[in-house]
Design a protein around this nucleic acid. Structure first.
Ligand SMILES: [Mg+2]
Length: 319
DNA sequence: GCGACAG
DNA sequence: ATCTTGTCGC
């Protein structure tokens, strides 16, 4: 089942009693990963008080300073005062004494469970080519406005180097961006798009496949989950390192992590920085690089570039 | 103290 | 990812 991080966040935040406060990082830890601290801030800023009520005014920075508040910091102070929490010089008075972090949490915590799932699926990743490798690729991307998401798939003919069909879908996304958990955020909407495609395709994701600290970037995640060939193209590096940057168009440099090659930096355009290509599932690293090279004119390969443009259009015309 | 992590 | 005006260069 898809993870509702707003709901999980509410379960934690509602344990903070009147007269006490907590921090974005403490809630993130209770969710199962400190990496989610900024996502907690995003949730506090965007949640629907009717659907998932929680005392966002009791959440502050790690150093006792106030953090943010959608209605202005004065309003945050004003809500804390009747609860017996006062603010002096922009800091919570007696912060250490009233900093609540003793949360009751399920075991495993939500993000720990997500990570376990990730590791389990990572064990199923195959980086060998399926035969035959489809001659069609489906470029996928999504544009956001809060929890509203606008996804687009561009069905693209690799041999003829041209788009064949465009697929659009809307969805509500209740899992904010958390580094290394991108698959959990975007899988649901992409699954809806992919369900509308009949032909065999190689999925092309805006993000990584095996370039991931736990071996399961979004491309691998979706590939394994749906049993489809997939690859990832990222505009910047999530983890690992390259010895040098490829100079010539078409040149590639390995991305290595713990002594293993997990992907390649590929120069797709003379003037732009390289993109980072990695196999997702049921495809070899070589084929992933070859396909991306074939369908690239500018920095970002056409299927993903068009999906990105169309997703942004889709969001703007839906507003 | 510095560096820092897809979208 | 989104928020935004101009500017530089091909
Ligand atoms: Mg994207």
């Amino acid at each position: 089942m898809d993870i509702d991080l707003y709901k999980e966040c509410g379960r934690i935040a509602n344990q903070v009693p009147e007269g006490m406060v907590t921090t974005y990082g403490a809630i993130a830890r209770a969710l199962g990963d400190i990496r989610a601290r900024r996502a907690v801030g995003v949730i506090m800023n965007t949640y629907d008080g009717k659907r998932t009520p929680m005392p966002c005014h009791r959440v502050v920075y790690h150093d006792g300073s106030l953090g943010g508040f959608a209605y202005g910091l004065d309003a945050k102070v004003k809500r804390l005062k009747p609860e017996g929490v006062s603010v002096k010089d922009g800091r919570i008075a007696g912060f250490e004494k009233i900093n609540f972090s003793d949360f009751k949490t399920p075991s495993p915590k939500p993000l720990e469970k997500a990570r376990e799932e990730q590791l389990r699926l990572a064990g199923k990743v195959s980086t060998s080519d399926v035969r035959p490798l489809p001659n069609l690729t489906l470029g996928l991307d999504v544009s956001y406005s809060g929890i509203r998401a606008y996804g687009v798939g561009i069905l693209f003919d690799i041999g003829n180097n041209e788009p064949v069909k465009t697929i659009r879908t809307k969805a509500e996304v209740r899992f904010p961006y958390v580094p290394t958990y991108l698959g959990f955020r975007e899988m649901p909407i992409f699954r809806k798009i992919i369900a509308k495609v009949e032909e065999p395709v190689v999925l092309m994701l805006d993000g990584n496949g095996t370039i991931h600290p736990f071996g399961l970037g979004i491309a691998s995640h979706i590939g394994v989950e749906l049993g489809m060939p997939s690859l990832g193209v990222a505009k910047s590096l999530l983890c690992g390192e390259t010895e040098s940057e490829p100079t010539r168009k078409g040149a590639a440099e390995p991305v290595r992590l713990d002594g293993k090659t997990i992907g390649h930096a590929l120069r797709t355009s003379e003037r732009a920085k390289p993109v980072y290509v990695s196999a997702g599932h049921r495809i070899s690293q070589d084929s992933a690089v070859t396909i991306v090279g074939k369908v690239s004119r500018l920095k970002v390969p056409e299927p993903v570039r068009l999906a990105h443009i169309e997703a942004t259009k889709f969001r703007k015309e839906s507003a």
